[in-house]
Design a protein around this nucleic acid. Structure first.
Length: 257
DNA sequence: ATGGTGGGTTACCCA
């Protein structure tokens, strides 16, 4: 099974890219973030023609998450129990015996800001919920736009980003608490090198100069870890005309998983 | 130090 995540920064604009990438990469599951679409406007039919079922939780203008899958997703959850967050950032579903939890983590704007406080609170609440999900589903993948670069090797210029948003110690500690539930950053099972990023700012020709951060992650539960076959980042779509500022990240599980 | 780019809406927006 091939599971991928992609922040598309408006599915309205990027639908042709999603169709093109699905045709060439053939993921079994694709988690999308920043669809920026109300549910009534989700392109169900176009994606069905591409061979994908879709579940989604969206809103106008901001946020929005979706899961595309070759087989129908089951047990869909779009809200963290006990946490009434109007922002559409969470979507969980079971596909092929794997619990898939799609997250669009709060960006946080700047360390110390109100949005930063929301980010840390959101991460704590989601982590508590993930503990419960993990207890029910040993085979679990938590993926999405985490808006956190886990370590300095995930940052093109660690000194410039030191304690800045996406890289600060409180954010990294919040991610570490999530990993402590029994999740592993699957990309790092296969590649220890710096220089691999999933997001490049639109400004300053950042992609051409590879000035990026690795903030899009696919976490695998302990029970799935031995079944991870490969993990990668596909930089190609970031170079397409009118690209998202993020590119797809991928986890491949061994056959039967 | 500042601002730059893009998607959205027409905002002291959000990334």
């Amino acid at each position: 099974m091939k599971i991928a995540s992609w922040n598309v920064n408006s599915l309205n604009v990027r639908l042709p890219h999603v169709q093109r990438w699905c045709a060439q990469a053939a993921p079994d599951v694709l988690a999308l973030q920043e669809t920026k679409l109300e549910d009534a406007r989700f392109p169900v039919e176009a994606l069905a023609q591409a061979g994908y079922h879709a579940v989604f939780s969206g809103q106008k203008t901001y946020n929005g998450v979706a899961i595309l899958a070759r087989e129908p997703p089951a047990d869909v959850v779009a809200d963290v129990p006990g946490y009434a967050d109007p922002q559409r950032r969470v979507l969980a579903a079971t596909v092929g015996g794997v619990r898939v939890v799609n997250l669009y983590v709060v960006n946080g704007q700047a360390v110390g800001s109100e949005k930063f406080a929301y980010k840390l609170d959101w991460l704590a609440r989601v982590t508590d919920w993930l503990a419960a999900e993990l207890a029910r589903h040993a085979r679990m993948v938590v993926l999405g736009d985490f808006n956190i670069a886990p370590e300095d090797r995930d940052v093109h210029d660690p000194e410039a980003w030191r304690e800045q948003i996406l890289c600060s110690t409180p954010e990294r500690e919040a991610l570490a608490r999530m990993l402590d539930l029994g999740l592993v950053d699957s990309f790092r099972l296969f590649n220890a090198d710096p220089g691999h990023y999933s997001w490049w700012d639109y400004r300053q020709a950042a992609f051409r100069r590879n000035l990026g951060l690795r903030i899009d992650l696919v976490l695998a539960s302990t029970a799935l870890q031995a079944h991870c076959r490969a993990a990668s980042i596909d930089r190609e779509p970031r170079g397409w005309e009118r690209a998202s500022d993020h590119t797809p990240v991928i986890l491949e599980l061994h056959d039967g998983h």
